[in-house]
Write a protein that binds this DNA or RNA. Sequence first.
DNA 1: ACATCGTGGATATACGATGTCCAAAATTAA
DNA 2: TTAATTTTGGACATCGTATATCCACGATGT
Lengths: 155, 155
Amino acid sequence: MIVSKTLDYAVRTLMYLGKRHGRGSVLMKEIAENQRIPLSYLAKVMRQLVKAGIVFSEYGPHGGYSLKKLPSEITLRQVYEAVEGEVKMVECLEVPGSACAFVDCCGQADIWQEVERKFISILEGITIQDIILRDCVYPEKLLTINKQENRHANT
Amino acid sequence: MIVSKTLDYAVRTLMYLGKRHGRGSVLMKEIAENQRIPLSYLAKVMRQLVKAGIVFSEYGPHGGYSLKKLPSEITLRQVYEAVEGEVKMVECLEVPGSACAFVDCCGQADIWQEVERKFISILEGITIQDIILRDCVYPEKLLTINKQENRHANT
DNA sequence: ACATCGTGGATATACGATGTCCAAAATTAA
DNA sequence: TTAATTTTGGACATCGTATATCCACGATGT
């Protein structure tokens, strides 16, 4: 399993924000309810997305989150790295005083680095926009749904 | 981190066996010592490689392990799946009564399946032979080293 | 018989992923 | 200024999996 729940949450959140892009900020609470993500955990994920410069946050009433870039400018690599840290296949290439006894003499290092490069370029080739377009909930439909849900919530 | 220690152990073991290919079987103990892998854990990994049909095992004196295929016929995909199970990016595509609330309506599924296909084909494009050729310990040199190490061990 | 060697399963341990909670900081409104 | 709202930061709990260890059993050769 390469895609963690956390990454899934991040992607879904960005898709949600992407569909609203340009229409003000969205409450964390709304995202959590609509996407069925534990609110207190989402809080943690949002901080990472803010820190990575992918979303913008505002305090207080009328606060919330909004995308800092266009959905078409946010790649899966950026999202992955925001929540999982740098993409890396093996430990040995990063650790200075490596625990690996074969650092100086290891056929695997080159190979995995090559795989890593290819994997990264796959992730770079996909944007949040691409995923939104494949989603069967389009902005219009989504807004309708949200209205209904909000009406419910207020009742 | 995508490559686990277990996968690393498996690859190193197969490289070691690959360099000896055609020269009889190798004791698990020898592999463990030469590759600095905990013997009791290696035992578990070896079982998986046997079960996957990648290596051949023999009991008793003069027993041990040997490759069941040529190093050039063993792909990283086979090794990965032997120890990690089927390559999969996301859970939802496999679980029947999925826990995901968005199964019927999820832009991510297609995307990750596409990434998965590409990742698999990368792994399929690399064989143990490829890795052996990049390793700076070639069979001849390796044999020498082993002789010395064995002499030490026997003393 | 006996020594050698892989097999199978039970068990322990450590660490990270996931999730919860609360107080503090920032912003707005009254 | 005060109160309400919303994000932020960090401490803490929980659970599953990766890693590791151990021991009895099965198979093979001498």
